[in-house]
Write a protein that binds this DNA or RNA. Structure first.
Length: 584
RNA sequence: CGGGGCGUAGCGCAGCCUGGUAGCGCACCUGCCUUGGGAGCAGGGGGUCGGAGGUUCAAAUCCUCUCGCCCCGACCA
């Protein structure tokens, strides 16, 4: 609850509500934030926060701030413009790619806009922290970040400029770092619970930040950009990029015993799995998809059961095995272009197969033990049937390379996975010594020995959390704010501002509530009631009080909760009590 | 980056094909009326038609270039 002086009159506040949302607003949170006068676009992926929008952002920030402080973290503020040297040190200047917006100052020196602050914080800590006695430490900031996204969209959900809480912890030991990871996991759980969100913590890939393991906090919503796999029995849940496929023996491909002779069949213009399986009247499970890939290490082929999808995140990690190289992941993998496909298969795209292929082959476990399969024949308009592993071709290595699908067995228990969608609002990483080593950030341990800091980092998208809340809490008329994020607690609608008794009553209630520390938005506009109701529904303040002359004559005021459909009456004298009760 | 689409008043759009006074709805301003679910009537303001160049007596409209915005993009092996 915010204190006194936090209330507002509609006529004093810029709340430009609109009936029709601009066409480019796709998801509901974007549309409603625009329509409710919370945000306005300045450029692609860059927004102004209007007064109403800022109030919600501040609500989220304060919850995050309170919980981070409670968890023992210290607030700092780092610059948004960062000298390139720091990014050179961590090697990310070259690796991070086009998402990093680079710029030069008047002396022609290189800088970037911070998309994340591992380098800056590591630099800050290495300058002033020397001893294990000063550890552990956890610093956080709430600050604007910039990532030059290829395709900004969905309003605050995927902007280029966005407000983020990012925290970085420093430890003397792995155990200590893991304790803090757990501490942050619990803190994040508290934060999102306080925000009133339905969410799930899932195992995740560490992506460009790097590190040894991580969890994402996902707000469950149909419009979410991420797919997550979740077990219906145990608490296993993971981002689809990371979700492990359990090796399982499937029915169709093992029904056949004995290996039939390899045969070439004509399949004119049949390229896709769907076309080929329909044409040859075989189950797609018996097809082997052969994808030709390029990577930073070299070209190769990937085999996959016909009805599965390749997971490039997993593939990246296994590329070194194909070429018998060290444990370093491939920097990049991508589907080979037509020319490369032709060079390797001697055929146009659509007819690649493992038999007689001039490159190394990695296969998903789903190919293991497959008998009498169908593959491309590396020849235009032809496929092989009755293809068998080892007899007809060799596989360099097997690995888990596919996306899990709904109905897969859980990798941890005998439950079943289901797929749902989520919006990533928080992400925690155990980094280890990745940055402290490359940037030479070290402390002296109790034996006087120099050791790199063990680090963790923890982010929360502030604007995205607000947007996610709208995705979960709205109806056809507008936003339905949960109390903790609501820009105001109470929205007073005097039906007729020209009626003295109505306005006097409204003012009285406004003052009474405000004095009691409840934040109130009073719609004192000289507008028709219908319009004010529409705006109230749109803006979504949890409690609406309607002050009308007829009810007033009977000493009554109407209360309507935004999340309920029907209003009810309350005695004027008991109003404060009732409102306080509803706020709990 | 590749493919597609769109730039005309604050928002949503028509006009463009077939060149000739720049329009409609909402919003905005004034007045009257009205006050429990985006009222009504009357009057009014607001446009470098994204920008530059070209064709033409004449360009929102035709041509060239350019900028911006939006949508889709392994599933083809």
């Amino acid at each position: 609850m915010q204190g006194k002086g936090d209330s507002m009159r509609f006529t004093k506040m810029l709340v430009p509500t609109i009936k029709e949302a601009p066409k480019d607003a796709e998801v509901i949170s974007h549309q409603l934030m625009l329509r409710a006068g919370m945000i306005r676009k300045v450029a692609s992926g860059i927004y102004n926060f209007l007064p109403l929008g800022l109030r919600v952002i501040k609500k989220v920030e304060n919850i995050v701030r309170e919980e981070m402080n409670r968890a023992g973290a210290q607030e700092v503020l780092m610059p948004m413009v960062i000298p390139s040297e720091l990014w050179q040190e961590s090697k990310r200047w070259d690796v991070y790619g086009r998402e990093l917006l680079r710029l030069k100052d008047r002396h022609d020196r290189d800088f970037c806009l911070g998309p994340t602050h591992e380098e800056v914080i590591t630099d800050m800590v290495r300058r002033d922290v020397r001893s294990y006695r000063q550890l552990p430490l956890n610093f956080y900031q709430i600050q604007t970040k910039f990532r030059d996204e290829i395709r900004p969209r969905f309003g605050l959900m995927r902007g280029r400029e966005f407000i983020m809480k990012d925290a970085y912890s420093f430890h003397a030991t792995e155990e200590c770092a893991e304790r803090e990871y757990k501490n942050m996991y619990e803190t994040y759980t508290r934060i999102f619970e306080r925000c009133g969100l339905k969410f799930k913590a899932v195992e995740a890939d560490t992506g460009q930040i790097g590190g040894s393991f991580s969890h994402e906090f996902m707000v469950l919503a149909e419009t979410g950009e991420d797919a997550i796999a979740s077990c219906n029995k145990c608490n296993y849940a993971a981002n689809i990029e990371k979700a492990e496929a359990r090796r399982q023996v499937s029915g169709v491909r093992c029904q056949v015993s004995g290996e039939k002779p390899l045969t070439k069949v004509s399949t004119p213009h049949m390229k896709s799995v769907e076309e080929v399986s329909k044409f040859l009247k075989v189950n797609p499970q018996l097809l082997v998809k052969t994808l030709i890939y390029d990577s930073s290490i070299g070209s190769f082929a990937v085999l996959l059961r016909g009805d599965y999808e390749l997971n490039e995140t997993k593939l990246k990690k296994h590329v070194p095995e194909i070429f018998n190289q060290g444990a370093v992941d491939a920097d990049w993998v991508k589907l080979a272009d037509d020319k490369t496909v032709r060079d390797i298969t001697n055929a146009p795209s659509g007819f690649a197969g493992p038999v007689g292929l001039k490159c190394k082959i990695i296969a998903d476990y789903s190919i293991h033990g497959i008998k009498n399969a169908v593959t491309g024949a590396n020849e235009k308009d032809a496929h092989f049937i009755n293809v068998n592993i080892d007899r007809d071709f060799k596989v360099e290595t097997f690995a888990d390379l596919r996306n899990v699908v709904s109905g897969d067995n859980c990798p941890r228990c005998d439950g079943t996975l289901e797929i749902m969608r989520g919006i990533e609002v928080g992400h925690i990483f155990k980094l280890g010594a990745k940055y402290s080593e490359s940037m030479n950030a070290a402390f002296l341990d109790e034996n006087g020995k120099e050791r790199p800091f063990i680090m963790g980092c923890y982010g929360i998208g502030i604007g995205r959390t607000a947007a996610a809340s709208i995705e979960q809490n709205h109806d056809k008329d507008g936003i339905i704010w949960p109390f903790p994020l609501a820009p105001f607690h109470v929205h007073i609608v005097p039906v007729n501002v020209n009626d003295r008794t109505v306005m006097d009553a409204a003012e009285g209630i406004y003052n009474e509530l405000e004095t009691a520390g409840i934040s109130v938005l009073m719609d004192d506009r000289d507008e028709r009631a219908g319009m004010k109701f529409k705006d109230a529904d749109l803006i979504g303040v949890p409690i609406r009080l309607t002050i009308g002359s007829k009810n007033l004559e009977n000493g009554m005021v109407e209360i309507k909760l935004r999340k309920e459909t029907t209003p009810f009456l309350c005695k004027r004298d008991e109003l404060l009590e009732k409102v306080k009760g509803a706020l709990k």
